[in-house]
């Protein structure tokens, strides 16, 4: 799980162009949206595409996203349970 969390932090920084943020700046349980990393709705859509492209997970119900994308830890847990690649 720790390796997956590290991988997710690297992907989030790269895909969302978080130029001034390093992996060390993101704690596993930090909120990704709002007061945390300050991600927006377009970032959320990019994360949904990433789940599909990199882990073979199609998010059918967008409402699920709120809980899944709460933090790196919640993302890693969901991916490890649902991934098809």
């Amino acid at each position: 799980m720790e390796a997956l969390q590290q991988e997710l932090k690297e992907k989030i920084i790269k895909i969302l162009n978080l130029e001034d943020i390093s992996v060390e700046d993101i704690n596993d349980n930090d909120p990704l949206f709002g007061a945390g990393l300050g991600l927006d709705s377009i970032d959320a859509l990019e994360l949904i595409v990433m789940l599909d492209k990199d882990y073979g997970i199609k998010l059918v119900d967008p409402k699920e996203g709120k809980a899944i994308f709460e933090s790196v830890a919640t993302m890693a847990k969901y991916i490890s349970e649902k991934r098809t690649k």
Partner: peptide, 9 residues
């Protein structure tokens, strides 16, 4: 086929 929302906008 993975259209990027961040590019599309």
């Amino acid at each position: 086929y993975f259209p990027s929302p961040a590019v599309f906008v």
